[in-house]
């Protein structure tokens, strides 16, 4: 199993090799004439573009990453290209097989009660300061 960092750092070594790659499906599956692009995030701020040609069976991707969703984690086996000729020099993986390892799920982004308190306090303070500021006629309307 290789990571984006390993593939990019050793791009010449892995160029044209069949590799295994695992990552979370980012928000968009981009269907094109000859296949589908997906971007797989495998670590903090690293992701790899994976091209799934039309003739490769594509499993159902039930969840794709967004703020409220953890995307499906998929395992790709495919050929890594340092500079893909088909895609005008892009660094990518052309998938030979795609398997969903872990289905995604909804992600909780809970509201912290202390932040609600902070907001109420600041909003009250703001109202007070604005009242002081605008109580003199003509203030805030220019010079």
């Amino acid at each position: 199993m290789l990571s984006t960092t390993e593939l990019v750092e050793d791009s010449y070594k892995w160029d044209g090799q069949t590799v295994s790659f695992k990552g979370e499906v980012l928000q968009d599956l981009m269907a094109r004439k000859d296949g589908t692009w997906m971007n797989l995030s495998d670590d903090n701020n690293t992701a790899m573009g994976v091209f799934v040609p039309k003739d490769v069976p594509m499993p159902l991707i039930s969840h794709m990453e967004d703020y409220r969703t953890v995307g499906d984690v998929v395992l790709i086996t495919g050929v890594f290209y340092r500079v893909c000729v088909q895609h005008e020099g892009e660094t990518d993986i052309h998938a030979v097989s795609v398997t969903v390892l872990t289905p995604g799920s909804a992600k909780a982004n809970p509201i912290h009660p202390d932040r609600v308190v902070w907001f109420v306090v600041l909003a009250g303070l703001l109202g007070l300061v604005m009242w002081f500021y605008y109580r003199k006629p003509g203030r805030g309307t220019g010079h």
Partner: peptide, 13 residues
């Protein structure tokens, strides 16, 4: 994105 909206409300205030 309620939590994020609250973050911006606090920051704006």
């Amino acid at each position: 994105e309620w939590a994020s909206a609250l973050d911006f409300a606090i920051s704006a205030a």
